[in-house]
């Protein structure tokens, strides 16, 4: 995972609540065995017309004014539904570095953080302000400082956002969480020594 310290990027808004993982990436794209190339599947059924190839000109991500946007502003409860980590893989593949919403589904948030896609929780007013800015002034840029846990709007207003210390450390240093768990092998063994195995799948 690459280090993520700051993001300077233009915003695009999808003001729809409860955007589920089947919209972020439909299940028919989950037959892959790697992570590469999923960007084209992001929001596939909204991005393309019925033939699955012709871009839907009405969908915001297809509008030239928003090309290159790297910060997605979404309605409440983004990423609900399945546990597929293909959702953050697809968003990253489509060029996004952060998603802003008032709330994220638990599994999506965990998956996003493990891949360097930053979920930024803001209050309703900030979310609505960002929707308006994106709508009225395509190309609007925001600044995100991961260390300071701060989102800076074009008018200079600073919005603090929550980020647990462990995830922050991993993002800033570009390390994944597995190394931490592997280093706890002694503690895992001690746990197993004092807790008999509860079920055996073999035999």
């Amino acid at each position: 995972m690459e280090k993520l310290r700051r993001i300077e990027g233009s915003i695009v808004g999808i003001p729809v609540n409860d955007i589920d993982t089947d919209q972020i990436i439909p299940a028919r794209f989950l037959k892959v065995t790697d992570k590469a190339g999923l960007g084209k599947a992001a929001f596939c059924d909204w991005r393309y017309l019925e033939d699955g190839e012709t871009p839907n000109p009405d969908f915001i991500l297809n509008q030239p004014a928003y090309a290159g946007a790297s910060v997605l502003v979404a309605g409440n409860n983004f990423g609900c539904g399945s546990s597929r980590e293909h959702a953050p893989w697809a968003l990253l593949g489509a060029g996004f570095k952060a998603v802003i919403s008032t709330e994220f589904a638990d599994i999506f948030r965990n998956n996003a953080l493990k891949n360097g896609l930053l979920p930024i929780v803001v209050d309703r007013d900030t979310q609505q302000q960002l929707f308006s800015l994106a709508d009225e002034d395509p190309g609007t840029t925001v600044h995100v400082d991961v260390e300071a846990q701060a989102l800076t709007l074009p008018d200079g207003r600073r919005v603090d956002f929550p980020l647990d210390g462990f995830s922050k450390y991993c993002l800033l240093h570009g390390v994944d969480q597995l190394g931490y768990l592997l280093a706890l092998e002694d503690e895992a063994q001690a746990y197993e020594a004092s807790n008999p195995q509860r079920v055996t799948t073999t035999g």
């Binding site: 599994i107 965990n110 891949n115 597995l178 768990l181």
Partner: peptide, 17 residues
């Protein structure tokens, strides 16, 4: 439910954060 990174964590360590 867990994501694929976490599937890897559990496969490798039998533990989860």
């Amino acid at each position: 439910g867990i994501g694929t990174s976490e599937v890897g964590h559990v496969l490798a360590t039998q533990t989860l954060l």
